[in-house]
Amino acid sequence: MASIFRFLLRYRTIILFVILESVSCVLIFNNSSYQKTQFAAYIDHVKGIIYEKYAGIKQYFSLHDENKKLVAENLELHNKLNQYINRDTIHSGVVMNILNRPAYSYKTARIIRNSTNKQQNFMILNTGSKQGVRPEMGVISSDGKMIGMIVKTSPNYSSAVSILNMGFIKFSGKLKRTGNYGTISWNGISINTVQLNDIMQQSDVVIGDTVTTNQHSGVFPENILIGTVEKINIKDGIFYEIDVKLSQDMKLLQNVYIVDIHDKDEIKTLLEDE
């Protein structure tokens, strides 16, 4: 018995090391359950308040540029609206039939914190579960480009994983022209480039092709712009690795939209039943 004690005492640093590392590893691999706890939500809430104050100051200095963007967006929307009004008067019956139930809707949000310098980049948005935001909703920029997905919500804030993440979440994307689809990942090298994988090598891809989201994941609606094909790398195996130049500058994000696909849960239960 005494020798056991002597052993424990002698190697106490190493034993402590092993215990602490084991605890850490358990935490790392059970991460998802921690994210749901009340405590994590509380920390996010406090941080949200502080970052919102900070973002308010930052936003004040970029008001000018934001205004310009809003004016441009307004103009574009007005033009679009005109087209619809004109069409409505001619084929109103048809439009009503198509639009009898909207498939998805948008919520507005503001980014109060955004990182681009990590290997897993996250954004914090100032709308949360009280405003109806739930995990697995898509996030798109104010100009309508895909930028991330909500992973966690607290009552008034939510955090979204950015498209710039290495292996944390894979988004799905497709080539708009041919409809071929694959997964979007990031190799962590440039913040303007992501990679489109799983496109067969004999398929038809040209530099400059548009890459958009597809509906399969149920996170985004069809045809939200991601970027354009910049370079086609031929790798061993049967797939291309295509470099996609992002259309959105990930450093210049402030106002964003969150996409709520209405029938997502219904589709999901059908998939799970299969």
């Binding site: 602490l20 590392e21 850490s24 590893c25 790392i28 991460n31 994590a40 920390i43 941080k47 996250f122």
Partner: peptide, 14 residues
């Protein structure tokens, strides 16, 4: 506090 992967900094610091 940083809200990344819980445990990564703990393991590293140990």
């Amino acid at each position: 506090i940083s809200g990344g992967i819980l445990g990564a900094h703990a393991a590293t610091c140990t």
